[in-house]
Write a protein that binds this DNA or RNA. Structure first.
Lengths: 80, 80
DNA sequence: GCGGATTTGTACGTATGTATG
DNA sequence: GCATACATACGTACAAATCCG
């Protein structure tokens, strides 16, 4: 869970959590991440913070996001 | 084809495509447009997006729509 | 006229994008 | 960082009108 009293910004904490889940394979390639609303409720942060965290992962190439559909873990390989 | 990552909204892109076809005469006055389902499949967007695009053209007077029949390019002249 | 297929109308529900305070 | 509002987009379901065999 994110910790209000850690020095690290909330969105960084959340990004780290999701990044770990992806790297560990708990979020499989091709799989959809929980919605922003779900993440918001799960980690008790605002939607803005969730979106900030997702942007971090997006910039890292860890996820891809589609309007109206959600964020996904992209396939590792190049068979697109 | 419509492009998910263009800045222009999908329904605007689709409206522009159909508007061009009308203005070019590829869709003749009096002719029926493809059904919403056909447009949906052709351009790979949701029906809601198709309907949004058609509403744009309807508001422009480019097409008229009848329940159970379809959308049509109205005659240019006033012989209704 | 009947019945199924087609087409548009409407209503929800869910999700992301953007803007504002 | 948070809260709210609205726009954009997808999916589903069903109703209403029309078309056609």
């Amino acid at each position: 869970m994110v910790d209000l009293w850690r020095a690290e910004p909330l969105h960084e904490q959340l990004a780290a959590i999701l990044r770990t889940q992806i790297d560990k394979g708990e979020l499989q390639p091709g799989q959809r991440l929980p919605s922003e609303l779900a993440l918001q409720q799960t980690y008790d942060v605002s939607r803005g913070t969730v979106r900030h965290a997702l942007k971090v992962l997006r910039d890292e190439g860890k996820i891809v996001t589609y309007l109206g559909r959600g964020s996904f873990v992209p396939p590792k390989n190049q068979d697109l």
